[in-house]
């Protein structure tokens, strides 16, 4: 059977197959789309035959391309939607955080130890804080929290500034989460750096405010979104550390395989971290700067921390979740 015979004999089937695949690619599968798997398998056999019989590169390339086209369509991922998102929030994400509880401890320690160390150092010696913040940083803190009255609320009084700040926080903070995750690629050093750096800087800011500004205006502002934002950052760090550890100690897998496996485990973490940070931006944009009684704002902040502890320890305990 020569190339010509082979092509001549099978051409009708191939054109039929092409028609079906094209319908799928355009998102308009016809009534006989159910035939596609069968036609696909036939085409696979044709390709093997063409390869075996050495029908030449032109034909094998053509069949190869057609098989790939069909493969892309048949093995397409059609899952998604609200149900999956709900499953992820209610079970997948807290389960992933619990599974990596050691990393949760590590990342929180890398953030909170420098935070408290620097913040408390302000009561003994303000120089550390001054060195970290620099002149510009201190001026900015003075401008926001320096006076007796609530300056942040005044800064936000102009129409639309809440929305603008919300967008700014999303861009800035979610971007930091993503970089913290990607930084894990440097054997985890990038993730640790971001956590440590933010711990130092925020600790310095808090220490400076306690020392030189009006602490109440600062703490009432940050309390509302603190749990979402800081835990979100720690979770992003966990995702990055998962990658970094896979590179450092791949176990019995080759490093590249270990990395791909780790990325699969880290995916729910970074998705959840992005979600938390986005929510933090909503709170920070629209709630934290409102002029409300301090007790209410502290209460909401504390409530946030309690909710998070409950969420991470209890949510999705009885559910088996397979992403």
């Amino acid at each position: 059977m020569t190339v010509g015979d082979f092509e001549h004999k099978n051409q009708p089937r191939w054109s039929e197959y092409e028609r079906l695949v094209e319908g799928m690619e355009k998102g308009k599968p016809g009534a006989e789309a159910g035939q596609l798997p069968r036609r696909f398998r036939e085409l696979c056999v044709d390709l093997s035959l063409a390869e075996y019989r050495m029908y030449g590169e032109r034909l094998t390339e053509q069949l190869n391309a057609q098989v790939i086209r069909g493969y892309e369509m048949l093995y397409r991922n059609r899952r998604g939607g609200w149900l999956m998102a709900a499953e992820f929030v209610l079970a997948g994400f807290p389960q992933a955080v619990r599974r990596e509880w050691r990393l949760f401890g590590l990342c929180n320690a890398v953030f909170w130890l420098p935070f408290f160390a620097v913040m408390l150092s302000a009561t003994y010696d303000i120089q550390w804080v001054q060195a970290i913040l620099g002149a510009d940083g201190m001026a900015a803190m003075d401008q926001m929290y320096g006076g007796k009255e609530d300056q942040i609320a005044h800064l936000r009084s102009e129409y639309g500034s809440n929305f603008m700040m919300f967008c700014h926080y999303i861009r800035n903070n979610v971007g930091i989460d993503f970089r913290t995750f990607a930084g894990g690629m440097a054997a985890g050093l990038g993730s640790l750096f971001f956590l440590f750096f933010n711990g130092l800087f925020m600790g310095a800011a808090a220490g400076y405010v306690n020392h030189a500004c009006n602490p109440e205006s600062f703490w009432t502002f940050v309390s509302g979104h603190s749990s979402l934002e800081l835990l979100g950052m720690a979770v992003a760090g966990m995702a990055g550390m998962r990658l970094g550890l896979a590179l450092l100690s791949p176990g019995r897998l080759p490093r590249v395989r270990a990395l791909a496996e780790a990325a699969r485990l880290a995916l729910p973490l970074i998705l959840g971290a992005a979600l938390m940070t986005t929510l933090a931006a909503v709170v920070e944009g629209f709630w934290s700067a409102q002029l409300l009684p301090s007790a209410l704002k502290y209460g909401v902040g504390l409530g946030g921390w309690i909710c998070h502890i409950a969420y991470f320890t209890l949510a999705g305990r009885r559910v088996t979740y397979a992403p």
């Binding site: 102009e158 129409y159 639309g160 500034s161 929305f163 603008m164 700040m165 919300f166 967008c167 700014h168 999303i170 861009r171 979610v174 971007g175």
Partner: peptide, 15 residues
């Protein structure tokens, strides 16, 4: 929309 809303949307678009 207001200057600040527009600026916010631009930041969001950049992101």
């Amino acid at each position: 929309l207001g200057d600040r809303v527009a600026r916010g949307m631009l930041l969001l678009a950049v992101f």
